[in-house]
Write a protein that binds this DNA or RNA. Sequence first.
RNA 1: GCCGAAGUGGCGGAACUGGUAGACGCGCCGGAUUCAAAAUCCGGUUCUGGCAACAGAGUGGGAGUUCGAUUCUCCCCUUCGGCACCA
Length: 693
Amino acid sequence: VIEGRGWRSGALVEQREIPQWFLKISDYADELLNDLDKLQEWPEAVRTMQRNWIGRSEGVEVDFDLATGGTPLRIYTTRPDTIFGATFMAVAVEHPLALEISRNDPRIAEFCAECRKGGASAAELETAEKTGMPLGVEAINPLSGERIPVYVANFVLMSYGTGAIMSVPAHDERDHAFAVKYGLPIRQVIAPADGSEINVQAQPWTSKQDMVTVNSGAYSGLSFAEAFDRIADGFEAQGRGRRRVNFRLRDWGVSRQRYWGCPIPVIYCDSCGPVPVPEADLPVVLPEDVSVTGGASPLQAMQDWVHVPCPGCGEPARRETDTFDTFFESSWYYARFACPDQDASMLDSRASYWTPVDQYVGGIEHAILHLLYARFFHKLMRDEGLVDSDEPFRRLLTQGMVLADCFYRTDADGGQAWYSPLEVESRRDAQGRISGGVLLSDGQPVNYGGMSKMSKSRNNGIDPQVMIDRYGADTVRLFIMFAAPPEQTLEFSESGVEGAYRFLKRLWKQVHDHVQVGSVDDLNPDGLSVPQQDLRRKAHETLHKAGDDIGRRATFNTAIAAAMELLNAIQKFAAGEAGGRAVVQEALEIIVLILAPITPHVGHALWQALGRPGAVVDQAWPAVDESALARESVELVVQVNGKLRGRISVSASAQRDQVLAAALAEPNVQRFVDGRELRKQIVVPGKLVNLVV
RNA sequence: GCCGAAGUGGCGGAACUGGUAGACGCGCCGGAUUCAAAAUCCGGUUCUGGCAACAGAGUGGGAGUUCGAUUCUCCCCUUCGGCACCA
């Protein structure tokens, strides 16, 4: 409730006092940063983005006296080791010193006003040149005693550090550009430790590694760490400065001027101040008969609702008319979901039991804000004793966006009309690439605009319900899970959906053909023919792989591919091999069980068709029969000088000598080895042989 | 500019810990079935040469490590995502 819309956050701290009891995300900045290391099952990209967003830096705050006396100029720097190279100072246009001088100097005032205006348009800022004006005052370098001019400059931010900097053009990109433009001196004070030459007049040199201080009086000849510590210690001893950690992360208000959303349960009393609404009066219910006038918040106009007696003293008081922003609720709903029926309090012990969430799924667009807020709220709730863990989400999966083909026509005045891929029959060129299409409604051609993110503007959104009506929910889910791993973008294609549909039909037919042959009989693993053993091994290998893909890797596409392979193997087997019903039954059950989380409806019908009791989604994940995985013989690849030259089949228990003998006996291998000296023989058990000649 | 991820057939993707590149699917080509079409089934499908067996090339480009590199190291290019004057 600390910040109205339109407030510049940098001015916030200056202009409004924040009560001590306010909960601030900045108070948790260190913990939010450090605990990222605990989130080993989060994507590295998300952790990096959060780390950069929090933006911790270690530096020193130093007071520079002004030659004219008065309040010293306080600056923040991460490079106290370069202080002897400071040839000017710079302050932000909102800095108190700039404001003070503006009052007597219209040119400075105009410059500051101009910068503030320019700052509003973000597009201009990108290429904005560094500009500034001398303020006509000088500062005194506390170590060298040198007098240097103070500028107001557009590149200094009021919202970071102290809004004032010492400028070291030899060792900072921005300061260098500024110094070149205004002809300010550029003085080198650090040098490569290996003695190599650099030219700081042409280009700044900013390295913290392998450097040594130069031209720095008593502080010359030091490494970065030594110089930092000795200079910081000196300032702290004098009371002129101190070490300080700064964060890029800023506090942000939770209130919005809306007539909807979650009410903020606070009443303002002239004598008692802000008073929480008593628990017995919760929840605060917003009025529904508001009228939106376009002016202030419509709630402020609801006099009957706004004016209430103070819960403390009973005198006339006013309700808070702002409401919470939506991120307030989305930051802790996962904990409330563990105890949704709890009336007496916000959360109960079930929240501790169920959190942290084992697996959280969301778009990459939430990588920073939502996930940072939720982490912050979780720590707040922990400190209130509402949950007993440090982090809300143990494992995070960020799924990709959905793309689709887009088709358009260009009209007479150059505008483009976009047509839904569902209304277009695509055309392919000789290579099978989509080259264009025909609009179904008028038979006329349309242009192909490639794949892009589903959007209204390109009219390429696909309503899943249309696909579900056409192919069924299981088919659509199978397609979605099969087309790409979840964290990658998903390209919608109706022919892909048809492929999933074909697979389910094939599986359906195979199961029903199978059950018509006879009743379920018992599997006798010891009495199987070699082809039967092969199919059974394939089934259990598939089960092993799919379990790992779904459980550990979250690559559902490869689990589905493995199930498809198994069905192909069953069909080949069933076509050639009489008997083996029990092996086929087992393999079909494995496919149905693997796919049950993805295609539960079809899976349930097939499970029952296979003569099995209960619901397929209630079945335990089947156990892999290790003995089914055993092989009597293995096929090895034979390479000569790393190139594939043949394949051999050897007993699984064959020794190195036997394997090598078999490899050398392979006719095609002999062609390449014949008459040459064998220099090296590499045998990778179960995989390959490499002969080096 | 900085940070992060990625670059593999006509397309989506697979190859998990350095060990058979292209699984699985789409598309395409050929065949069966059909009066015909749809659906279904069978075969083929990285490129080049060859009837074939097979050979050569090949995972964005260039170097390197290794018996062996899509995978590891260095440099460069491109694409996507994030941040963007953070001192």
